[in-house]
Amino acid sequence: MSEYLLEVKDLKQHFPIRTGWFSSKPLKAVDGVSFEIKPGETLGLVGESGCGKTTVGRTILHLYKPTSGEIIYNGQQITPQNIHNFRQEMQIVFQDPYSSLNPRMTVSDIVGEPLDIHKLYGTKGERADRINELLRLVGLNSDHARRYAHEFSGGQRQRIGIARALAVNPKFIVCDEPVSALDVSIQAQVINTFEDLQEKLGIAYLFIAHDLLVVKHISQRIAVMYLGRIVEIADADEVIAHPMHPYTQSLISAIPIPDPNTARTRQRIPLEGDVPSPLNMPSGCAFRTRCRYATERCAQECPGLTEIGPGHRIACWNPHE
């Protein structure tokens, strides 16, 4: 047994895009992503829209069938044939608490459905007890069980989504932008819930978000994605304090800091232009078209992730401090 709960090796997810009647072109949403997550750890996955972070999360759970690559959970490789055995171990919480809950089901039906599917109770009474326990765990109470999703606010709905994911006692949860649809004051409540659950139940998270402040807060390690590849991965503090990839540097310098003095004195590293289309990727390093340090080599060869410090890996030919 390895020390990792989940290992992802060279994961690729290409979607065919029709370009004519009989021709299609692959859209490389995820193009060779590798990372590991230890039991009880949170890995933050950040990047801008279209970088493939959500696709990574969904592909791990086989919500999309991966084009190639390996997903190894607890030493066992996950395939489309055996994914059902892992559904109890791996769950997901979605971004939008409004569309991810069925409006025709009561909260007890929503939270109870995974229990039904996996036959995790003996009697009806046990089922009801378990649902109440789950609701209490995420900060709701048993009165809520008979209501419908529309009767709740955004933050409460997200808690229902979390309770549903927890129903089967998973060891790993993919959190796909779970707080970005929520107001600031509610966001903090939900983040604290995630942290409490991790402490209590030892769950590992893949925490996908675009808000670096949130990701820095909740993660032990952070992976930064750009156009389907991981460009930098390291401990959370290390990524924020000493980013080495030019993209990470720009990304961190662009975070709006809620502090007027810092905002006034801070130097931004502006990024020119827009993200290239993933259908028409630049040769070599995908970031070279917007990179300050791009050289000829960057256009020819794609850099792989290389270790530059303890646990700190980047994909760049000429990193600068």
Partner: peptide, 24 residues
């Protein structure tokens, strides 16, 4: 005060967020 307490800080070490209780 509550709003300012509830946002994560970049420079701070890992401190627990202090959310505003209840809903709008």
């Amino acid at each position: 005060k509550g709003l300012l307490r509830s946002i994560p800080r970049l420079d701070a070490g890992h401190t627990r967020l202090i959310p505003i209780a209840g809903s709008p």
